[in-house]
């Protein structure tokens, strides 16, 4: 009788451990939610960067119009998506010698997925490719095609409904962007707002 009680106790303990494990993995793979409910089907998130700077030591490139179109969905409870459009306009540098002749997002769509690092939800954009052609007679990069490639992880703030990309968020997610053969800095603050079926609904990730 005593042995049976011990066996039941062990089974319950094992179940508790399993439940805890599942809970952990669920939190590691957050989902897109609108008004607190998990997204069913897909939704389009559209917006423009409030601020976005791309920096190689000594030269920073800024785009006044850094728009994006992101299609999101949940697959097996995990938030995924694709960046399908990234129009970039009015891009300038902090250099009096260099101007941006052309800049264009390539290799679209860029796959995206949600993840959690230390309780903070993140969105990871993969397969980023942005060639930038600089010009300017005195610009040392004049005529050189500088291609930004890699992946980038940004933290999601459910309160402000924004995604922030910077060196801290890239490091936290183990992602990096490269250009000219080295890691470059990308600082960006992007609003996350639905523009299709869930317009004006609170968007969150958890």
């Amino acid at each position: 009788m005593r042995r049976k009680q011990t066996a039941i106790g062990a089974a319950l303990a094992a179940l508790a451990v399993l439940c805890a494990m599942f809970a952990t993995s669920a939190s590691a793979a957050p989902a897109w939610k609108f008004e607190g409910k998990s997204l069913e089907g897909s939704e389009v998130v559209l917006g423009g960067a409030i601020d976005s700077l791309l920096t190689v030591p000594g030269l920073t490139t800024k785009c006044e119009n850094f728009l994006y179109k992101l299609t999101v969905k949940n697959e097996a409870g995990t938030g995924k998506g694709e960046v399908t459009e990234v129009p970039l306009y009015n891009c300038t540098t902090n250099s009096s010698a260099c101007t941006v002749q052309s800049i264009k997002a390539e290799a679209l769509p860029w796959a995206s997925k949600l993840t959690t690092v230390s309780t903070t939800p993140y969105i990871i954009i993969e397969g980023v490719k942005v060639p930038i052609l600089y010009e300017g007679e005195e610009c040392v990069l004049g005529g050189i095609l500088v291609t930004v490639t890699g992946s980038a992880g940004g933290s999601i703030n459910n309160t402000t409904e924004t995604a922030t990309f910077n060196s801290t968020t890239l490091t936290a997610t183990g992602t990096s962007l490269k250009a000219l053969g080295q890691k470059i800095e990308w600082n960006g603050l992007f609003p996350t707002e639905a523009f299709q079926w869930h317009r004006e609904q609170a968007l969150s990730v958890s």
Binding site: V56, L59, S96, A97, C98, V140, L180
Partner: peptide
Amino acid sequence: GSAGEIEFLEEGRIL
């Protein structure tokens, strides 16, 4: 090989 650690001087006039 490697392009090395790149830095721009003189506001982008020297690499």
